[in-house]
Simulated assay, not measured.
Amino acid sequence: MVVFPNAKINIGLNIVEKRSDGFHNLTSCFYPVGWCDALEILPASAIRFESSGLPIPGDSTHNLCLKAYKLLAQEYSLPPVSIHLLKAVPIGAGLGGGSADAAFTIKALSEIFSLNLSVATQQDYARKLGSDCAFFIENKPNFCFGKGDEFEQIDVRLTGMHLVLVHPGIHISTAEAYAGIRPKQPAHDLQELLQQPIDQWRTGVVNDFEEALFSTYPLLPAIKTELYQQGAVYASMSGSGSTLYGIFREAPNLSNNFVDFTVWQGELT
Rank of each mutant, 00 (worst) to 15 (best):
V2M: 05
V3Y: 03
V3E: 11
A7I: 07
N10E: 09
N10K: 07
I11Y: 07
N14K: 11
E17G: 15
S20K: 12
D21A: 10
D21V: 08
H24P: 06
N25R: 13
L26G: 08
S28Y: 00
C29G: 02
Y31I: 07
P32Y: 10
P32S: 10
G34D: 14
W35A: 09
D37M: 01
D37H: 01
I41T: 00
I41M: 01
A44N: 15
S52F: 00
S52H: 00
S60R: 13
L64F: 05
C65M: 07
K67I: 07
K70V: 04
L72K: 01
L72A: 02
Q74C: 13
Q74D: 14
P80W: 09
P80A: 09
I83Y: 10
A88F: 04
A88Y: 01
G92Y: 05
G92M: 05
A93R: 06
G97Y: 06
G98M: 07
S99P: 08
A100H: 06
A100I: 05
A103Q: 07
F104K: 01
E111A: 08
F113D: 02
F113R: 01
F113I: 00
L115Q: 03
L115C: 03
L115V: 02
L115F: 03
S118E: 10
V119M: 06
A120G: 12
K128I: 01
L129C: 06
G130R: 00
D132H: 06
F135E: 09
F136A: 00
K140W: 03
P141Q: 08
F143T: 04
F145L: 12
G146N: 15
G146D: 15
K147H: 03
K147D: 00
E150G: 00
E150T: 11
F151P: 14
F151G: 02
Q153V: 09
I154M: 07
D155Q: 15
D155S: 15
D155K: 15
V156L: 15
R157A: 00
R157N: 05
L158V: 05
L158S: 05
G160N: 03
G160I: 02
H162L: 02
H162C: 12
H167Q: 11
H167C: 13
H167Y: 15
S173E: 05
A175W: 08
E176A: 06
A179C: 12
R182T: 12
K184L: 10
Q185L: 09
Q185S: 11
D189S: 12
L190M: 06
L193V: 03
Q196D: 04
D199I: 07
G204Y: 14
N207V: 03
D208M: 01
F209N: 04
E211P: 02
L213H: 10
L213K: 09
F214I: 05
F214L: 00
L220G: 07
P221C: 03
P221Q: 01
I223M: 10
E226Q: 14
Y228C: 07
Q229A: 12
Q230L: 13
V233L: 13
A235M: 12
S238P: 08
S240M: 04
S240F: 04
T243G: 10
L244Y: 10
L244A: 11
I247C: 10
E250T: 15
P252G: 11
P252H: 08
P252R: 14
N256A: 13
F258R: 13
V259D: 05
V259I: 10
D260G: 00
G266D: 09
